[in-house]
Design a protein around this nucleic acid. Structure first.
Length: 567
RNA sequence: GGGCGUAUGGCUUAGUCAGGAUAUAGCACUGGCCUCCUAAGCCAGCGGUCGAGGGUUCAAAUCCCUCUACGCCCGCCA
């Protein structure tokens, strides 16, 4: 249940009755100190040809004896609602204590596939595209919390030139036994990939050799495709290990070659040829994009080569048709470099008479102060290295505080390190560009995961010290007397709204933002309001602490960050 | 040349789609708080012509137009 909805429903009901309308109007939150909800009467002024001030004063009288509100006040055309604190507290504590780890969850229906990461299997994941798995996984978690059946999916490109180069290098260059020692598969392979690339660029003979392999792949040579896939899977082992370490689980891996091998790409090709916007140039087929508003260089989308073989985007279309058969909503998390390609997929689907479109969440790259990351140039920060650094830094912080005798150092440092990375990445809107700086990535204060985890640990600590049996928590709203308690109740009440918006509008950054606010509010409460040493308020304050702990834990769960009992 | 995106205090950032009351936080900086449930914390202070210029409106960070800077893309690559 959503506690705020109780109040909003009441406001909406009364106002609709008063102004005799069925139309929806927004119920907002006023600036600090002006109440809990507000309705802007300007919007009604035109319709009734009366001043907003008059309207608001009229409406004010309608709420004069409403038990849900302490005070309803017309002010300069706004109608401000001050909720009844006791009522709010009763509803919030009642709801959270009943729903516990389900507080904030929903009961939405539908199958959603979130495709994310889908990085080329030619080396380790790096921070440049590191937002992809984190945003994707977080969105999947939020949507699951809302009740959807969610599958996460990684589309593995096992047909590209990059992998062909790697596979060639693997077969022909071999691996130095010494170098391999103790290294993850993806890190071993990326060295081969780099060497292969160098040869591909500089040695004519080798380039021709690899290009011949690529042609064979495109023509559907099963033996070679199987080999490519084997190499891709080798690399995927390393990538998956990195993801799992970050609490990111992928449900399905779909290999691009499958759509060539099962013939579905060629069905797509045949159907696209029938489009009235299809054309042919030297045997290569394309869709003319001019009717769709494209000008200049990119006004043709080629979906076959001159020799009739398919292209990456064509196979992506086949993949989407397949995906649509398995879900109601398909969400793809993609780098901003895929915008044009995604548009071409969308147009092609339309040309195929498919009504559906994938929903796309684009993110901008994480770059380094010295520029864009590049695997080939070796100018990268690998996600594995970032994780290692973060965990090491977390450990350092634990030792600095002398907590090593009280906590499981390894467990806590992993939870804090991984959490810090995830939180820092997901808290920023995906379309904003990020410049990677170690000191920011490893910041454990303020708006960060450790801040939230710390608040959770403090709440846990109170319950532990008080020997609280969480199955028998009771409360009495009359015992809430401090402004710190009121503030906490109010923030707790907002959680279901936040989760709903984060999921439905695909704005995952709302969750960390909210958790920071909740943790901060709790910390202030913690500082000024004694719990275990309180008198008759003790039970109710314990309930409030527990409700906060549940909410923090629920939010952290959605971020894939561990809620620690101690740190 | 064309397309898409971004621009808010020294740095990072919310609010922009659905215009409205004092523009949200964090970092940094200054000052204060551990005889009391974990100081990865709390309190106070400092700091903003919301990229520039026009327009619409009773009201613009938010809508419209023009421009600038930065990022990404524009291959019968992936």
């Amino acid at each position: 249940m959503n506690p705020l909805q109780v109040f909003r429903d009441e406001i909406a009901k009364e106002i609709r009755a008063a102004i005799k309308t069925d139309t929806e109007f927004p119920i907002d939150e006023p600036p600090e100190g002006l109440g809990d909800f507000c309705v802007k009467c300007f919007q009604f002024a035109k319709q009734f040809r009366r001043s907003p001030v008059e309207i608001s004063m009229d409406l004010e009288t309608r709420f004069s004896n409403n038990p849900l509100f302490e005070k309803v006040e017309a002010k300069g055309g706004y109608l401000n609602f001050y909720v009844n604190r006791r009522e709010m507290a009763r509803i919030v504590l009642g709801t959270v204590l009943e729903e516990r780890e389900k507080y904030g969850n929903g009961s939405k229906k539908g199958r959603i596939i979130v495709e994310h990461t889908s990085a080329n299997p030619t080396g380790p994941l790096h921070v440049g595209r590191g937002r992809n798995p984190i945003i994707g996984d977080t969105l999947a978690r939020v949507l699951r919390a809302l009740g959807y059946e969610v599958q996460t999916e990684y589309y593995v490109d096992d047909m590209g030139r990059q992998l062909a180069i790697l596979a060639w290098a693997y077969k022909n260059l071999g691996i130095d036994g010494e170098e391999k020692k103790g290294k993850k598969e993806d890190h071993v392979l990326v060295e081969l990939y780099r060497k292969g690339n160098e040869l591909f660029e500089n040695e004519e003979k080798i380039r021709r050799e690899i290009e011949a392999i690529i042609r064979q792949i495109e023509q559907g040579n099963r033996e070679i495709i199987a080999y490519q896939r084997k190499i891709a899977e080798k690399c995927m082992k390393g990538i998956v290990a990195t993801l799992e370490r970050c609490n990111i689980h992928i449900d399905n891996f779909v290999y691009e070659s499958e759509f060539l091998l099962d013939g579905s790409v060629y069905e797509v090709v045949e159907r696209l040829k029938q489009s009235r916007h299809a054309g042919c140039e030297d045997g290569a087929y394309y869709i003319d994009l001019a009717p769709f508003g494209f000008h200049g260089k990119d006004s043709k989308f080629f979906f076959t080569r001159g020799d009739g073989t398919s292209l990456y985007t064509t196979r992506d279309i086949a993949y989407h048709l397949n995906k649509f058969s398995r879900c109601d909503v398909a969400i793809n998390v993609l780098g901003e470099d895929h915008k044009l390609q995604a548009k071409m997929v969308a147009i092609s689907l339309q040309e195929l008479g498919v009504e559906r479109k994938p929903e796309i969440l684009f993110y901008s790259f994480v770059s380094l102060p010295e520029g864009k990351m590049s695997t080939r140039a070796g100018r990268v920060v690998y996600l594995d290295d970032l994780v290692e650094e973060a965990v090491a830094k977390a450990k350092e912080e634990i030792l600095k505080r002398g907590r090593e005798s009280k906590v499981d150092v390894d467990k806590v440092s992993v939870a804090v390190g991984i959490g810090a990375i995830r939180f820092n990445i997901v808290k920023i809107q995906p379309e904003k560009q990020i410049v990677f700086r170690w000191e920011e990535a490893l910041n454990f204060e303020g708006n960060s995961a450790p801040f939230v985890q710390y608040a959770h640990a403090r709440a846990a600590s109170i319950l532990r010290n008080g020997n609280v049996d969480i199955r028998k928590i009771t409360y009495n709203a009359e015992h809430l007397r401090t402004p710190e308690e009121d503030a906490l109740i109010k923030v707790l009440a907002k959680f279901p709204d936040v989760v709903d918006t984060a999921g439905e509008e695909r704005k995952v950054y709302l969750i960390p933002q909210y958790l920071h606010k909740l943790a901060e509010t709790f910390n202030t409460f913690y500082r000024y309001v004694p719990v275990l040493n309180a008198g008759e308020e003790r039970e109710t304050r314990i309930a409030l602490v527990y409700a906060t702990k549940c909410t923090l834990a629920n939010g952290l769960q959605m971020l894939g960050i561990e809620a620690l009992e101690e740190m």
